[in-house]
Simulated assay, not measured.
Amino acid sequence: MRKLLLFILVASFMFLFGCSAFLPKEEPTTPVTSEQQPPKAEETKDTPNVTKPTEPAISNSNEDLADAFSNYLDDIVVLAPEEERLIGLYDSVTGVNYVDDETMYYTLVDEVLPGYRQFVIDLEAIMPKNQEIRDLHETYIDAANIQYNAFAIMIAALEEQDSNKMTEANQGLDEARQLIRDWLYGVEDLSSKTGVSLE
């Protein structure tokens, strides 16, 4: 279920921004290696009695991170269908589905913008306790806020028939896309680091 909803979330973002392929999984797993090295160094410096207490602490720390990450994914998965719906509405009046400015305008004003504002509020309500996950989540929040603002600028561009504002809105969508890409890489990294499957 989690895999399906994360797939929907990723596909929605990629579809919105015209991407045709998913991100390559080329990120190294050095964070895992760097965490594993310090305990080995301690083992060579310290007596075996000192090493024994540190091993469970590291294990518990990894388990805590894995639990926190799993809970975070569960929270994100709950919001994925609403974001997919909103992006689907946006897509239904843009690109090849564009009919006219009026249809696009009222869809953005009546449905996409208010719905996406609530989505951002719900996204901001997720407050992970783990700092690493919190930092990752802030990237997603930043992307969602930039995307929300891009929708608002797009509405203003339609009202004023201003091509410069439409360009600004599209630049905002591009910036949001890059942040979402960064967030997705971070999710993949944490999945590798914690062993929490995205499937």
Score class of each variant (00 low, 15 high):
I133L: 14
A150M: 02
N130D: 07
F7W: 11
E82L: 12
T54K: 14
L6H: 06
K193G: 01
T194C: 11
V10M: 05
E160D: 11
L4G: 09
V109H: 01
R85V: 03
I76Q: 09
S163D: 15
E188V: 14
D110K: 13
M104E: 10
A150R: 03
M1P: 06
E63A: 12
A80T: 01
S20F: 01
N170T: 05
E159A: 00
T94I: 09
F15K: 10
Y106A: 02
T94K: 11
K3W: 03
A41P: 00
E138Y: 03
G95N: 04
L173P: 00
K25F: 14
S34E: 09
D162V: 14
E42Y: 15
S92Q: 08
Y106C: 02
G18C: 02
L79K: 01
N71V: 08
L113G: 03
W183H: 11
T194D: 04
G186R: 02
E102H: 03
H137S: 05
E102I: 12
S12I: 04
E159C: 04
S197D: 07
D189Y: 02
T30L: 13
A125T: 08
Y106T: 03
M14I: 14
N164L: 09
S12W: 06
I146K: 13
A66S: 15
K45P: 07
I146S: 02
E82H: 10
S192P: 09
I133Q: 05
E188T: 12
M154D: 06
L198R: 12
V93L: 05
E84Q: 11
L108C: 07
T33V: 15
D75Y: 14
R85S: 11
E102N: 05
I58N: 15
R85D: 04
D74T: 05
V10C: 05
S59V: 07
S192V: 08
D91P: 01
P24F: 09
R177K: 15
F69N: 00
E82V: 12
N71Q: 10
T139Y: 01
T139V: 15
Y98F: 13
L179R: 08
L6D: 00
D162N: 14
D135T: 14
L9V: 03
Q131M: 10
P48W: 04
P28K: 08
M14R: 13
L179Y: 02
F119Q: 08
E159N: 10
C19S: 00
A150G: 07
D74F: 15
R177D: 13
E43G: 07
D64T: 02
K129L: 06
T30Y: 13
E83H: 00
S70Y: 04
G195D: 13
E111D: 11
I121A: 02
I141T: 04
T29Q: 06
P56H: 08
V93H: 07
T103Q: 14
L179F: 04
E132K: 10
R134D: 13
N62G: 08
I87R: 10
P48D: 12
P128A: 11
I180F: 07
S197W: 01
T103V: 06
F119E: 01
T194Y: 11
N49L: 14
T47Q: 07
T54F: 08
F22C: 03
S191F: 05
G95C: 06
T167H: 12
W183R: 11
W183M: 01
D91M: 11
C19E: 12
Y72Q: 07
Y185K: 10
S20V: 01
N164Q: 15
E27I: 04
K165S: 00
G88S: 15
